[in-house]
Simulated assay, not measured.
Amino acid sequence: MTALAQIDLASPCQGCGACCAYSANWPRFTIEDDAALDAIPAELVNARLSGMRCENDRCAALSGKVGEATACTIYALRPEVCRDCQPGDPECTMARRKYKLPPLPDTRPA
C-alpha cells in the first residue's frame, strides 16, 4: 500500500496539520471583519494583531502532532487564510513537502 493510500481522504487535514505549522507568517489576518477578529481568543493573536500567534512556525491554535493527528482548537473561528487552504492545493502541497508528507489529490473544483 502506498503512503497516499493510507491517508484518510475523508478528513486529510486531521492527520496532517502541515499548513498550520508551515510558517509564522502564514496565519495572517486579511479580510476578516472586526466581529470575526474579536471572536478569536486574544491569547491566540500575535502581538502585532496581524495574525495568529505562533510558536516557531506552528500556529498556537493547532493541537496534536503534525503528520499524525491534529486539530484546530478554534476551527469554527479560524481566519480566512486557514479556510482558503484546501487539501491538495499548491499551499497544502508546499506545507506537506516541508514535513516530508506525500502530496494529496487536489480537491478544488476543476
Rank of each mutant, 00 (worst) to 15 (best):
P105W: 06
S50D: 14
L4G: 01
N46H: 09
R58G: 01
D38I: 05
R97F: 10
L49T: 10
S50Y: 00
A5L: 12
S11Q: 14
K100I: 00
E43N: 14
R28G: 02
K65I: 15
A21F: 09
L101G: 02
L4F: 04
A35E: 12
D34H: 03
P41I: 13
R108N: 07
T70A: 04
T73L: 07
R96N: 09
R58W: 04
L44T: 08
Q6Y: 04
D84T: 10
P105N: 04
V66R: 06
I74F: 04
G17L: 03
D8A: 08
R78M: 01
C20H: 08
P12L: 09
L49S: 11
K100W: 03
C92I: 10
K65Y: 04
C92N: 03
P103T: 10
D84A: 11
G67T: 09
L101T: 10
Y75I: 05
T70D: 01
M52I: 15
A39E: 09
Y99E: 04
C20R: 07
L101A: 03
D57T: 13
T73M: 05
G67K: 10
A76L: 12
P79Y: 07
E68F: 11
R53K: 15
R96Y: 07
P27I: 08
E80W: 11
A3M: 09
D8Q: 11
R28W: 04
D8T: 13
A18W: 08
L4Q: 15
G17V: 09
T73F: 00
E32I: 11
S50N: 11
A69R: 15
Q6T: 15
L49R: 15
T2N: 12
L49E: 13
I7F: 05
A76K: 14
P105A: 08
I74E: 02
M52K: 06
L101D: 01
G64Q: 10
G17A: 05
S23C: 03
A5H: 12
A24K: 15
A47S: 11
P12V: 11
A5V: 09
Y22S: 05
K98M: 07
S63H: 11
L101S: 04
L49I: 03
R96D: 07
D106M: 04
S11H: 14
M1R: 09
T73P: 00
T2S: 15
S11F: 06
P103H: 08
T107H: 01
C54A: 03
T73V: 06
T30E: 13
A69T: 13
L77I: 11
N46S: 02
D84L: 13
